[in-house]
Design a protein around this nucleic acid. Structure first.
Lengths: 200, 200
DNA sequence: TCTAATCACATACGCCACGTATGTAAGTGG
DNA sequence: CCACTTACATACGTGGCGTATGTGATTAGA
């Protein structure tokens, strides 16, 4: 019954804390999540948490970085599957809205994250998923498909709009209906970016 | 030295708590604001606060309702001053971005508010300032200036985009430059709404 | 005008959560 | 094999929130 190597045990502990914290933050929210509770749920104590992440905010940062990475990867796949660059971009935006509908993402990344850690773009994780959107836009501009605007600014606006749309949809009386309206309105706004609007 | 009537004293107390809480929430943030501290700063104790607002969240709601009213009034004035309806709408959006740059509004209404109280549109205050934007849009649609889309959805998207733009600008290395980029990008998006884009 | 009831707060108490300081056992390098 | 580090657990203090209770001033009724 030889023990696993030490480094592996450590990584496992870290992963357990990350998962347990993510679960707690995603359900009851950051402020309401008790460190004693969710570390115990992972079979550990706060001591381990402070050792690995410094403090509660440190764990939140790590959780967000993890989720952010997953979101980024999902967006990458979506845009890669599209037929043409513009459609890829539109799909990416739509996917972003859909992701923002997931309670865990909404709660952790979109609500508690900014309120607790401040502006997402200043985060170490650099909000990779928005970077991805910025890149897509730059390519569209280079290809003369989209008018010349600062891609970072547009990506910002898009993601902000998506977030609020998602909040709205999630809390609407009739989510599917609200979702349709939001996507429709979203497409109208996006058309403002196109150089040649006629091809609609 | 006849004392003021009782009702007036009560209103004064309420106002003092509201102002002190608003000051604290706007500077150190909701979570970091100690009730003992900012009630003492108002020359009172937490007893008064619990009597008037129920709990800490109750005070936050009241503060937000107050700020929301002010924002709504400012937006109303801006759109009323514009030459034509479309310009009025654009000005309103721009004003919204500018307001979102104010630290107090950003901190309380845009960050801590949603994180603590949930979706803004479910708030009792009904987010009057976004209502105002919805109304403006409805008028533009009725006047056939803007394509037929759900005004509520658009207002949602706009306000979300504005918020994130403001966060970006506020934290940018060069805020004035970022602001220009954001407004430019914003105008491009808004043009997607126009029926006849040529009049630009 | 005297009294009783109410109201607008202040005071006191307990609980819980966070952060830190300290302890300890297991592992590692020389 | 021994000194040292690492990865946690335990113990403690502080502070913030909510509630239960107290109290003095105001108001209402006879």
């Amino acid at each position: 019954m030889a023990h696993k190597p030490r480094s592996e045990m450590i990584a496992e502990t870290r992963a357990k804390l990350l998962a347990s914290g993510r679960q707690a933050f995603g359900t009851v929210g950051y402020a309401e999540a008790s460190m004693d509770d969710f570390t115990a749920a992972a079979g550990l104590t706060r001591g381990a948490l402070y050792h690995h992440f410094g403090d509660k905010k440190g764990l939140l940062e790590a959780v967000i970085a993890e989720i952010d990475g997953e979101m980024s990867e999902r967006l990458r796949q979506v845009s890669a599957m599209a037929g043409n660059p513009w459609q890829g971009f539109v799909d990416e935006c739509t996917a972003y809205i859909e992701m923002a509908l997931e309670p865990e993402i909404q709660r952790i990344v979109l609500l508690d994250g900014p309120a607790t850690l401040g502006d997402p773009w200043q985060w170490p994780s650099q909000n990779a998923c928005i970077r991805s959107m910025t890149d897509s836009l730059q390519k569209l501009i280079d290809a003369k498909l989209v008018v010349e605007v600062d891609p970072e600014a547009i990506a910002r606006l898009i993601s902000g709009a998506s977030l609020h749309a998602a909040l709205w949809i999630a809390n609407a009386d009739d989510p599917p209906s609200a979702s349709k309206k939001a996507v429709k309105a979203f497409n109208v706004l996006l058309e403002g970016l196109l150089k040649d609007r006629s091809r609609h």
